[in-house]
Amino acid sequence: MSTTAIPTGTKWWNGGRSPFNASYGKVMMWYFLMSDAFTFGAFLISYGTLRFSENYWVDPNHVFSAFPFAEGMNLPLSFVSLMTFILIFSSVTMVLAVHEGHKMNRKAVEKYIFWTIIGGLAFLSCQAWEWTHLLTHQHEVWINGINGAAGHVELWNTTVSHNPFGPEVTINGHQYATPGPVAFGSYFFEITGFHGFHVFSGVIINLIMYIKTKMGHFDQRGHYEMVEKAGLYWHFVDLVWVFVFLCFYLI
């Protein structure tokens, strides 16, 4: 594609052209993503609000310390770093696909979209494993007796309505966890679930892009802008993960 230097003093706003030198579809995608940012923003901010209203919060290093095929080992943050790198890398393949699209290089676009889809599926599989682990892995929890009844120990997994990650107590020389803040599990499953749903829809969109590329639709059309818009969505998913990673795993 030939390059035209944009003359200075172009009257962008005078009508008859896009003030952004961008097609309406791309502008619309950007504003959609902005609006979606407010959806995620609202989720994360309300999570923060409830977290601020609690005296005690869960230590993420304590919760996310497992790795597949490494039962019993304490590996804090390791699995989630794997997930993060998968997503960042799939972002790179996506941006390469967009790049090749500009050069109308169909074979390369196919290759990179394929790897992006693989990355998305790998991420979703990781998430499935992590959810399964939290939902099935049980911890001993000390439950207080109510109205004078004796306290006792129960085995708790992590769900949306309870989790075993409260402050630790020592009873008769044993260390036990107590019930953790309910909002932790609720928000964890809700927000990562909503993000996972976005990843899933991103994979579907990329699959459509892959098929359309393979069928030569974009070559007929003369441009790969649709891949670019799918790419915007995919990067947004990555962007949201950066913040989910921060809010749930790091701080």
């Binding site: 594609m1 944009i6 172009t10 097609s23 309406y24 441009h223």
Partner: peptide, 10 residues
């Protein structure tokens, strides 16, 4: 090629 609203090829 992409859209009539685009004045300059990016």
């Amino acid at each position: 090629t992409i859209s009539p609203e685009i004045t300059f090829a990016p």
